[in-house]
Design a protein around this nucleic acid. Sequence first.
DNA 1: GCCAACGTTGGC
DNA 2: GCCAACGTTGGC
Length: 157
Amino acid sequence: MTRYWLMKSEPGSFSWEDLLASPRKTTRWDGVRNYQARNLLRDTIAKGDGVLFYHSNANPPAVVGTATVTRAGYPDPTQFDARSRYHDPRSDPEAPRWFAVDIRAGHALRRPVPLATLRETAGLAKMELLRKGSRLSVQPVTAAEWKIVLKLGGIGG
DNA sequence: GCCAACGTTGGC
DNA sequence: GCCAACGTTGGC
């Protein structure tokens, strides 16, 4: 069963344009250091799942494109890399603490959908992103929410 | 830059 | 197990 997700990225560190410029428009979604998000990456997110690519800490914050999961959860190598800013010396290679997935860019939205627009859209009232205090960098999106966001973005009907 | 909300750490 | 202190996220 195909599921849908929203992934946040600060364009100052890795933007939608950076994803498009990546080899095969694919990147490893690594550096996630939150246990709830880790559980999703490790246990639930599957190859073929759809991703809304969201620019956080942006002006305006907005969903800007879609992506596809091309590789399901595997140990995030940055946790074992002493030179990485994501290095975690307490993670045991025999039982890795952090996981990553690979994603490939799908379509740019014809119109990015700003956070404010999401908030104004009735069918999205229960979106995780809109919950007060929500900070999950990887979060579930329902099929209905996915459809609505794509429509707002001018793709997918 | 501010600050609310949340997660993690560590003393006890 | 409690909770204060601290660090991070992310909108504004």
